[in-house]
Write a protein that binds this DNA or RNA. Structure first.
Length: 438
DNA sequence: TCTGGGGTCCTAGGACCC
DNA sequence: TCTGGGGTCCTAGGACCC
Protein backbone atom coordinates (compact mmCIF):
# COMPACT_ATOMS: atom_id res chain seq x y z
CA UNK A 1 0.00 0.00 0.00
CA UNK A 2 1.14 3.47 -0.81
CA UNK A 3 2.55 5.44 2.08
CA UNK A 4 0.24 8.26 3.14
CA UNK A 5 1.13 11.58 4.66
CA UNK A 6 -0.99 13.72 6.97
CA UNK A 7 -0.18 17.08 8.48
CA UNK A 8 -1.77 18.81 11.43
CA UNK A 9 -1.45 22.55 11.69
CA UNK A 10 -2.72 24.52 14.65
CA UNK A 11 -2.52 27.95 16.21
CA UNK A 12 -0.48 28.06 19.42
CA UNK A 13 -2.56 29.07 22.45
CA UNK A 14 -5.21 30.25 20.01
CA UNK A 15 -7.48 32.52 22.07
CA UNK A 16 -4.58 34.15 23.89
CA UNK A 17 -2.73 34.66 20.60
CA UNK A 18 -5.82 36.34 19.11
CA UNK A 19 -6.03 38.74 22.05
CA UNK A 20 -2.35 39.56 21.59
CA UNK A 21 -2.80 40.48 17.94
CA UNK A 22 -4.91 43.45 19.03
CA UNK A 23 -3.03 44.16 22.22
CA UNK A 24 0.73 43.64 21.73
CA UNK A 25 1.37 44.79 25.28
CA UNK A 26 0.28 41.31 26.30
CA UNK A 27 3.30 39.76 24.60
CA UNK A 28 5.66 37.96 26.99
CA UNK A 29 3.15 38.34 29.82
CA UNK A 30 1.11 35.57 31.47
CA UNK A 31 -2.37 35.70 29.89
CA UNK A 32 -5.44 33.49 30.27
CA UNK A 33 -8.83 33.46 28.55
CA UNK A 34 -11.90 32.19 30.42
CA UNK A 35 -14.94 30.25 29.23
CA UNK A 36 -18.54 31.47 29.32
CA UNK A 37 -19.62 32.97 32.64
CA UNK A 38 -15.88 33.16 33.37
CA UNK A 39 -16.21 29.57 34.55
CA UNK A 40 -12.85 28.07 33.77
CA UNK A 41 -9.58 28.60 31.92
CA UNK A 42 -9.73 27.67 28.23
CA UNK A 43 -6.54 29.22 26.86
CA UNK A 44 -3.16 30.04 28.43
CA UNK A 45 -0.05 31.77 27.21
CA UNK A 46 3.23 29.91 27.69
CA UNK A 47 4.02 32.26 30.56
CA UNK A 48 0.76 31.29 32.26
CA UNK A 49 1.57 27.62 31.70
CA UNK A 50 4.90 28.02 33.49
CA UNK A 51 2.91 29.41 36.45
CA UNK A 52 1.27 25.96 36.54
CA UNK A 53 -2.13 27.21 35.49
CA UNK A 54 -3.81 24.11 34.13
CA UNK A 55 -6.23 23.76 31.24
CA UNK A 56 -9.94 23.81 32.19
CA UNK A 57 -9.18 24.77 35.79
CA UNK A 58 -12.10 26.54 37.49
CA UNK A 59 -11.20 30.20 37.62
CA UNK A 60 -12.42 30.76 41.20
CA UNK A 61 -9.87 28.20 42.40
CA UNK A 62 -6.86 30.11 41.10
CA UNK A 63 -8.15 33.65 40.75
CA UNK A 64 -6.47 35.08 43.82
CA UNK A 65 -3.10 33.52 43.16
CA UNK A 66 -3.18 34.38 39.46
CA UNK A 67 -4.03 38.01 40.05
CA UNK A 68 -1.19 38.26 42.53
CA UNK A 69 1.18 36.83 39.96
CA UNK A 70 0.08 39.55 37.54
CA UNK A 71 -1.79 37.29 35.14
CA UNK A 72 -3.85 39.21 32.57
CA UNK A 73 -7.30 37.68 32.29
CA UNK A 74 -9.96 37.96 29.56
CA UNK A 75 -13.51 36.76 29.13
CA UNK A 76 -13.79 34.91 25.84
CA UNK A 77 -14.62 36.88 22.72
CA UNK A 78 -15.83 34.25 20.28
CA UNK A 79 -16.69 36.75 17.56
CA UNK A 80 -13.03 37.75 17.45
CA UNK A 81 -11.67 34.19 17.53
CA UNK A 82 -14.13 33.09 14.87
CA UNK A 83 -13.03 35.88 12.57
CA UNK A 84 -9.34 35.12 13.05
CA UNK A 85 -10.06 31.45 12.44
CA UNK A 86 -11.75 32.28 9.14
CA UNK A 87 -8.66 34.17 7.99
CA UNK A 88 -6.44 31.30 9.09
CA UNK A 89 -8.39 28.82 6.94
CA UNK A 90 -8.38 31.21 3.98
CA UNK A 91 -4.58 31.23 4.02
CA UNK A 92 -4.50 27.43 4.20
CA UNK A 93 -6.61 27.33 1.07
CA UNK A 94 -3.96 29.30 -0.78
CA UNK A 95 -1.46 26.56 -0.02
CA UNK A 96 -3.58 23.41 -0.33
CA UNK A 97 -6.61 22.34 -2.33
CA UNK A 98 -9.75 22.65 -0.26
CA UNK A 99 -10.52 18.93 -0.67
CA UNK A 100 -7.26 18.16 1.09
CA UNK A 101 -8.23 20.15 4.18
CA UNK A 102 -10.24 18.97 7.15
CA UNK A 103 -10.89 21.79 9.63
CA UNK A 104 -10.78 19.96 12.95
CA UNK A 105 -11.54 22.76 15.36
CA UNK A 106 -11.52 26.54 15.47
CA UNK A 107 -7.70 26.55 15.40
CA UNK A 108 -6.70 23.21 13.91
CA UNK A 109 -6.69 21.62 10.50
CA UNK A 110 -5.68 18.23 9.13
CA UNK A 111 -4.08 18.28 5.69
CA UNK A 112 -3.80 15.43 3.20
CA UNK A 113 -0.21 15.82 2.10
CA UNK A 114 0.18 12.72 -0.04
CA UNK A 115 -0.64 14.46 -3.35
CA UNK A 116 2.00 17.15 -2.72
CA UNK A 117 4.81 14.95 -1.46
CA UNK A 118 6.43 14.38 -4.84
CA UNK A 119 6.27 17.88 -6.23
CA UNK A 120 7.33 20.06 -3.32
CA UNK A 121 9.93 20.26 -0.62
CA UNK A 122 7.55 19.67 2.26
CA UNK A 123 9.61 21.23 5.01
CA UNK A 124 10.30 24.37 3.02
CA UNK A 125 6.65 24.68 1.96
CA UNK A 126 5.35 24.23 5.51
CA UNK A 127 7.82 26.65 7.01
CA UNK A 128 6.80 29.20 4.42
CA UNK A 129 3.13 28.65 5.39
CA UNK A 130 3.90 29.17 9.07
CA UNK A 131 5.70 32.39 8.32
CA UNK A 132 2.93 33.65 6.00
CA UNK A 133 0.29 33.10 8.67
CA UNK A 134 2.45 34.94 11.15
CA UNK A 135 3.07 37.85 8.80
CA UNK A 136 -0.49 38.23 7.53
CA UNK A 137 -2.60 37.70 10.65
CA UNK A 138 -0.02 37.65 13.44
CA UNK A 139 -0.76 34.17 14.75
CA UNK A 140 1.96 31.64 15.68
CA UNK A 141 1.48 28.09 14.36
CA UNK A 142 3.03 24.63 14.51
CA UNK A 143 2.92 21.82 11.97
CA UNK A 144 3.36 18.10 12.60
CA UNK A 145 3.52 15.45 9.89
CA UNK A 146 3.09 11.69 10.08
CA UNK A 147 1.87 8.67 8.17
CA UNK A 148 -1.45 8.77 10.04
CA UNK A 149 -3.60 11.40 11.70
CA UNK A 150 -2.59 10.14 15.14
CA UNK A 151 1.07 10.43 14.18
CA UNK A 152 0.49 13.92 12.79
CA UNK A 153 -1.08 14.91 16.11
CA UNK A 154 1.90 13.51 17.95
CA UNK A 155 4.33 15.24 15.60
CA UNK A 156 2.52 18.52 16.19
CA UNK A 157 2.90 17.92 19.91
CA UNK A 158 6.65 17.48 19.45
CA UNK A 159 6.87 20.55 17.21
CA UNK A 160 5.29 22.57 19.99
CA UNK A 161 7.02 21.14 23.05
CA UNK A 162 10.52 20.54 21.68
CA UNK A 163 12.21 23.78 20.84
CA UNK A 164 14.71 21.85 18.73
CA UNK A 165 12.08 21.25 16.09
CA UNK A 166 11.38 24.98 15.69
CA UNK A 167 7.60 24.56 15.17
CA UNK A 168 7.90 21.87 12.52
CA UNK A 169 8.21 18.10 13.00
CA UNK A 170 8.35 15.59 10.16
CA UNK A 171 8.08 12.18 11.82
CA UNK A 172 8.84 9.97 8.79
CA UNK A 173 12.23 11.66 8.50
CA UNK A 174 13.28 10.77 12.03
CA UNK A 175 15.44 7.69 12.40
CA UNK A 176 13.80 4.91 14.35
CA UNK A 177 15.91 5.46 17.47
CA UNK A 178 14.90 9.11 17.77
CA UNK A 179 11.23 8.25 17.19
CA UNK A 180 11.48 5.52 19.80
CA UNK A 181 12.98 7.78 22.43
CA UNK A 182 10.43 10.53 21.73
CA UNK A 183 7.66 7.97 22.21
CA UNK A 184 9.19 6.84 25.46
CA UNK A 185 9.28 10.37 26.78
CA UNK A 186 5.64 11.05 25.88
CA UNK A 187 3.03 10.10 28.47
CA UNK A 188 0.31 7.90 27.04
CA UNK A 189 -2.29 10.54 27.98
CA UNK A 190 -0.74 12.83 25.35
CA UNK A 191 -1.75 10.45 22.56
CA UNK A 192 -4.77 11.61 20.60
CA UNK A 193 -7.76 9.54 21.72
CA UNK A 194 -6.33 8.47 25.06
CA UNK A 195 -7.86 10.55 27.80
CA UNK A 196 -7.59 10.77 31.55
CA UNK A 197 -9.72 7.76 32.41
CA UNK A 198 -8.19 5.33 29.94
CA UNK A 199 -4.61 6.42 30.59
CA UNK A 200 -5.16 5.77 34.29
CA UNK A 201 -6.58 2.33 33.56
CA UNK A 202 -3.72 1.54 31.18
CA UNK A 203 -1.34 1.70 34.14
CA UNK A 204 -2.79 -1.63 35.26
CA UNK A 205 -1.36 -3.07 32.05
CA UNK A 206 1.99 -1.39 32.65
CA UNK A 207 1.42 1.03 29.84
CA UNK A 208 2.72 4.43 30.84
CA UNK A 209 4.05 6.12 27.72
CA UNK A 210 3.38 6.20 23.99
CA UNK A 211 6.06 3.64 23.34
CA UNK A 212 4.40 1.12 25.66
CA UNK A 213 1.11 1.68 23.89
CA UNK A 214 2.55 1.40 20.39
CA UNK A 215 3.90 -2.07 21.12
CA UNK A 216 1.04 -3.28 23.34
CA UNK A 217 -1.20 -6.20 22.45
CA UNK A 218 -3.86 -4.58 20.32
CA UNK A 219 -6.39 -7.43 20.47
CA UNK A 220 -6.10 -7.84 24.18
CA UNK A 221 -6.64 -4.13 24.81
CA UNK A 222 -9.51 -3.98 22.32
CA UNK A 223 -11.28 -6.60 24.42
CA UNK A 224 -10.64 -4.74 27.65
CA UNK A 225 -11.54 -1.31 26.30
CA UNK A 226 -12.99 -0.91 22.83
CA UNK A 227 -12.04 -0.95 19.18
CA UNK A 228 -11.03 2.69 19.47
CA UNK A 229 -7.83 1.85 21.30
CA UNK A 230 -6.90 -0.83 18.77
CA UNK A 231 -7.26 1.75 16.03
CA UNK A 232 -5.04 4.16 17.94
CA UNK A 233 -2.32 1.50 18.27
CA UNK A 234 -2.36 0.80 14.55
CA UNK A 235 -2.22 4.49 13.80
CA UNK A 236 0.78 4.89 16.09
CA UNK A 237 2.51 2.15 14.13
CA UNK A 238 1.88 4.06 10.92
CA UNK A 239 -1.11 2.15 9.59
CA UNK A 240 -3.70 4.73 8.62
CA UNK A 241 -7.15 3.87 10.00
CA UNK A 242 -8.74 7.30 10.29
CA UNK A 243 -9.37 8.96 6.96
CA UNK A 244 -9.63 12.66 6.30
CA UNK A 245 -13.22 13.70 7.03
CA UNK A 246 -15.29 15.33 4.37
CA UNK A 247 -16.29 18.72 5.78
CA UNK A 248 -19.28 18.73 3.45
CA UNK A 249 -20.93 16.02 5.53
CA UNK A 250 -23.22 17.88 7.91
CA UNK A 251 -23.27 17.27 11.66
CA UNK A 252 -25.45 14.53 13.02
CA UNK A 253 -26.47 16.44 16.07
CA UNK A 254 -26.81 20.12 16.61
CA UNK A 255 -27.00 21.39 20.12
CA UNK A 256 -27.12 24.57 22.09
CA UNK A 257 -26.67 24.77 25.83
CA UNK A 258 -25.70 27.24 28.48
CA UNK A 259 -25.22 27.35 32.20
CA UNK A 260 -27.18 29.99 34.05
CA UNK A 261 -25.32 32.69 35.91
CA UNK A 262 -27.41 31.72 38.95
CA UNK A 263 -29.75 28.79 39.48
CA UNK A 264 -33.46 29.13 38.86
CA UNK A 265 -36.63 27.25 39.61
CA UNK A 266 -39.17 29.24 37.63
CA UNK A 267 -40.76 27.17 34.90
CA UNK A 268 -41.66 30.08 32.65
CA UNK A 269 -38.09 31.42 32.66
CA UNK A 270 -36.83 27.92 31.91
CA UNK A 271 -39.19 27.81 28.94
CA UNK A 272 -37.83 31.11 27.70
CA UNK A 273 -34.33 29.68 27.89
CA UNK A 274 -35.41 26.60 25.93
CA UNK A 275 -36.94 28.80 23.24
CA UNK A 276 -33.70 30.78 23.04
CA UNK A 277 -31.75 27.56 22.44
CA UNK A 278 -34.28 26.27 19.93
CA UNK A 279 -33.73 29.47 17.97
CA UNK A 280 -29.95 29.09 17.96
CA UNK A 281 -30.10 25.43 17.02
CA UNK A 282 -32.66 26.09 14.34
CA UNK A 283 -30.39 28.67 12.73
CA UNK A 284 -27.61 26.12 12.33
CA UNK A 285 -30.07 23.48 11.15
CA UNK A 286 -31.26 25.66 8.29
CA UNK A 287 -27.75 26.85 7.42
CA UNK A 288 -26.78 23.23 6.93
CA UNK A 289 -30.03 22.67 5.02
CA UNK A 290 -30.96 19.83 7.32
CA UNK A 291 -34.22 18.59 8.75
CA UNK A 292 -34.69 17.77 12.39
CA UNK A 293 -36.00 14.31 13.17
CA UNK A 294 -35.92 14.37 16.93
CA UNK A 295 -35.80 17.07 19.59
CA UNK A 296 -33.95 16.38 22.85
CA UNK A 297 -34.24 18.62 25.87
CA UNK A 298 -32.05 18.28 28.98
CA UNK A 299 -32.47 20.10 32.25
CA UNK A 300 -29.57 20.07 34.67
CA UNK A 301 -30.33 20.38 38.35
CA UNK A 302 -28.00 21.38 41.08
CA UNK A 303 -26.52 18.63 43.25
CA UNK A 304 -24.28 19.11 46.27
CA UNK A 305 -21.23 17.13 45.11
CA UNK A 306 -18.99 17.31 42.03
CA UNK A 307 -19.75 17.71 39.22
CA UNK A 308 -22.47 19.77 40.95
CA UNK A 309 -25.05 19.13 38.28
CA UNK A 310 -27.06 16.22 37.03
CA UNK A 311 -29.00 16.12 33.83
CA UNK A 312 -32.34 14.56 33.03
CA UNK A 313 -33.33 14.49 29.44
CA UNK A 314 -36.22 13.64 27.23
CA UNK A 315 -36.40 13.07 23.50
CA UNK A 316 -39.36 13.39 21.23
CA UNK A 317 -39.38 12.18 17.66
CA UNK A 318 -41.28 14.25 15.14
CA UNK A 319 -43.93 12.78 12.95
CA UNK A 320 -42.16 14.25 9.97
CA UNK A 321 -38.63 15.58 9.90
CA UNK A 322 -38.91 19.33 9.67
CA UNK A 323 -37.16 22.67 9.93
CA UNK A 324 -40.30 24.50 10.96
CA UNK A 325 -39.36 26.71 13.89
CA UNK A 326 -42.79 26.75 15.50
CA UNK A 327 -43.11 22.98 15.45
CA UNK A 328 -39.63 22.52 16.87
CA UNK A 329 -40.22 25.04 19.62
CA UNK A 330 -43.58 23.54 20.49
CA UNK A 331 -42.00 20.07 20.68
CA UNK A 332 -39.22 21.33 22.93
CA UNK A 333 -41.56 23.17 25.28
CA UNK A 334 -43.75 20.10 25.66
CA UNK A 335 -40.72 18.35 27.09
CA UNK A 336 -40.08 21.03 29.66
CA UNK A 337 -43.52 20.13 31.04
CA UNK A 338 -42.48 16.50 31.23
CA UNK A 339 -39.10 17.16 32.85
CA UNK A 340 -39.81 20.09 35.12
CA UNK A 341 -40.19 19.46 38.83
CA UNK A 342 -41.23 22.07 41.36
CA UNK A 343 -38.70 23.08 43.99
CA UNK A 344 -35.70 21.93 42.00
CA UNK A 345 -32.87 24.32 41.29
CA UNK A 346 -31.83 24.28 37.67
CA UNK A 347 -28.38 25.38 36.59
CA UNK A 348 -28.21 24.55 32.90
CA UNK A 349 -30.44 23.78 29.94
CA UNK A 350 -29.67 22.06 26.67
CA UNK A 351 -31.55 21.65 23.41
CA UNK A 352 -30.36 19.13 20.84
CA UNK A 353 -31.68 18.31 17.39
CA UNK A 354 -30.93 14.98 15.84
CA UNK A 355 -30.62 15.79 12.19
CA UNK A 356 -32.36 13.66 9.65
CA UNK A 357 -29.12 12.63 8.00
CA UNK A 358 -28.06 10.79 11.15
CA UNK A 359 -30.79 8.29 10.46
CA UNK A 360 -28.86 7.28 7.39
CA UNK A 361 -25.99 6.22 9.55
CA UNK A 362 -28.10 3.57 11.20
CA UNK A 363 -29.38 2.14 8.01
CA UNK A 364 -28.11 -0.79 6.14
CA UNK A 365 -25.50 0.00 3.50
CA UNK A 366 -27.94 -0.72 0.78
CA UNK A 367 -30.50 1.76 1.95
CA UNK A 368 -30.87 4.78 -0.21
CA UNK A 369 -30.66 7.88 1.99
CA UNK A 370 -34.03 8.39 3.56
CA UNK A 371 -36.13 10.90 1.75
CA UNK A 372 -39.74 11.74 1.84
CA UNK A 373 -40.68 11.70 -1.74
CA UNK A 374 -43.38 14.12 -2.62
CA UNK A 375 -43.01 14.18 -6.37
CA UNK A 376 -43.12 11.27 -8.72
CA UNK A 377 -40.20 12.76 -10.68
CA UNK A 378 -38.04 12.75 -7.57
CA UNK A 379 -38.90 9.13 -6.99
CA UNK A 380 -37.87 8.25 -10.51
CA UNK A 381 -34.54 10.05 -10.15
CA UNK A 382 -33.71 8.10 -7.03
CA UNK A 383 -34.74 4.81 -8.50
CA UNK A 384 -32.66 5.43 -11.58
CA UNK A 385 -29.63 6.18 -9.46
CA UNK A 386 -30.15 2.99 -7.49
CA UNK A 387 -30.55 0.98 -10.63
CA UNK A 388 -27.24 2.34 -11.89
CA UNK A 389 -25.49 1.71 -8.63
CA UNK A 390 -26.77 -1.75 -7.85
CA UNK A 391 -27.66 -2.92 -11.29
CA UNK A 392 -30.81 -4.51 -10.05
CA UNK A 393 -34.33 -4.43 -11.36
CA UNK A 394 -35.75 -5.79 -8.18
CA UNK A 395 -36.63 -3.18 -5.61
CA UNK A 396 -38.27 -3.24 -2.22
CA UNK A 397 -40.71 -0.51 -1.39
CA UNK A 398 -42.48 0.53 1.77
CA UNK A 399 -43.05 3.23 4.28
CA UNK A 400 -39.78 3.44 6.02
CA UNK A 401 -39.65 1.71 9.36
CA UNK A 402 -37.33 4.38 10.70
CA UNK A 403 -39.77 7.14 10.04
CA UNK A 404 -39.13 9.77 12.69
CA UNK A 405 -42.56 9.06 14.03
CA UNK A 406 -41.30 6.74 16.70
CA UNK A 407 -44.28 7.33 18.86
CA UNK A 408 -46.55 6.44 16.04
CA UNK A 409 -44.36 3.70 14.71
CA UNK A 410 -47.12 1.14 14.70
CA UNK A 411 -49.32 3.30 12.53
CA UNK A 412 -46.59 4.09 10.07
CA UNK A 413 -45.15 0.69 9.62
CA UNK A 414 -46.44 -0.92 6.51
CA UNK A 415 -45.34 -4.17 4.94
CA UNK A 416 -42.61 -3.72 2.42
CA UNK A 417 -43.11 -5.51 -0.79
CA UNK A 418 -40.89 -6.43 -3.61
CA UNK A 419 -41.63 -5.25 -7.04
CA UNK A 420 -39.91 -4.79 -10.33
CA UNK A 421 -38.69 -1.73 -12.12
CA UNK A 422 -41.61 -1.47 -14.53
CA UNK A 423 -44.25 -1.65 -11.85
CA UNK A 424 -42.72 1.21 -9.98
CA UNK A 425 -43.47 3.52 -12.83
CA UNK A 426 -47.08 3.45 -11.78
CA UNK A 427 -46.45 4.39 -8.16
CA UNK A 428 -47.35 7.94 -7.32
CA UNK A 429 -47.84 7.72 -3.59
CA UNK A 430 -46.16 10.26 -1.36
CA UNK A 431 -44.00 9.59 1.65
CA UNK A 432 -42.28 6.54 0.24
CA UNK A 433 -38.84 5.32 1.16
CA UNK A 434 -37.02 3.03 -1.17
CA UNK A 435 -34.43 0.35 -0.78
CA UNK A 436 -32.78 -2.13 -3.01
CA UNK A 437 -33.98 -5.64 -2.46
CA UNK A 438 -31.37 -7.70 -0.65
C1' DT B 1 -49.34 -22.59 21.48
C1' DC B 2 -44.54 -22.27 22.49
C1' DT B 3 -39.65 -21.42 21.45
C1' DG B 4 -35.71 -19.42 19.23
C1' DG B 5 -32.23 -17.11 16.24
C1' DG B 6 -30.87 -13.20 13.63
C1' DG B 7 -31.42 -8.71 12.88
C1' DT B 8 -32.84 -3.62 13.45
C1' DC B 9 -33.92 0.47 15.96
C1' DC B 10 -33.65 3.34 19.79
C1' DT B 11 -32.06 5.08 24.35
C1' DA B 12 -28.79 6.02 27.83
C1' DG B 13 -24.47 6.68 29.15
C1' DG B 14 -19.44 6.78 28.96
C1' DA B 15 -15.21 8.22 26.96
C1' DC B 16 -12.87 11.21 24.14
C1' DC B 17 -11.66 15.74 21.53
C1' DC B 18 -10.94 21.03 21.35
C1' DT C 1 -20.57 30.21 46.55
C1' DC C 2 -17.81 29.54 42.05
C1' DT C 3 -16.44 23.92 37.29
C1' DG C 4 -17.74 26.28 28.88
C1' DG C 5 -20.00 24.73 25.13
C1' DG C 6 -19.79 22.51 21.52
C1' DG C 7 -19.09 17.87 19.09
C1' DT C 8 -17.82 12.60 17.95
C1' DC C 9 -17.85 7.53 18.42
C1' DC C 10 -18.74 3.25 20.94
C1' DT C 11 -21.32 -0.07 23.88
C1' DA C 12 -24.98 -2.33 26.31
C1' DG C 13 -29.51 -3.50 26.65
C1' DG C 14 -34.49 -3.52 25.74
C1' DA C 15 -38.22 -3.71 22.41
C1' DC C 16 -39.59 -5.31 18.37
C1' DC C 17 -39.77 -7.79 13.82
C1' DC C 18 -39.58 -11.82 10.74
Amino acid sequence: MKEQLFALIDINNCYVSCERVFNPQLNDKPVVVLSNNDGCVVSRSNEAKTLNIGMAVPWYEIEKEAMQAGVKVFSSNYALYGDMSRRFFLILQQYFHIDDLEPYSIDECFIRLTPYAKSIDIEQYCRELISTINQWIGLPCCIGIGATKTQAKLANHFAKKRTGFKSFCFLPDLDFCSYESLLQETPVADVWGIGRKISKQLEDYEIYNSYDLTFANEHHLAKQFSVVIARTIRELKGQSCIALDDPAIPSKRILSSRSFASDLSDKSILKQAVTFHVNRTHKRLTTQQQLCACVHVSLYEKIPNPPYKKGTSHALGLEYATDDLLTLNHTALKQVNVLFKENKKYVKVEVMFTALSSKQQHMHDLWQPLQLIQQRDDLMKILLKMKQRYGSDCIQVGYHSTSPAWQMKQHHRSPRYTTCWQELLTISDSGLAVTQNK
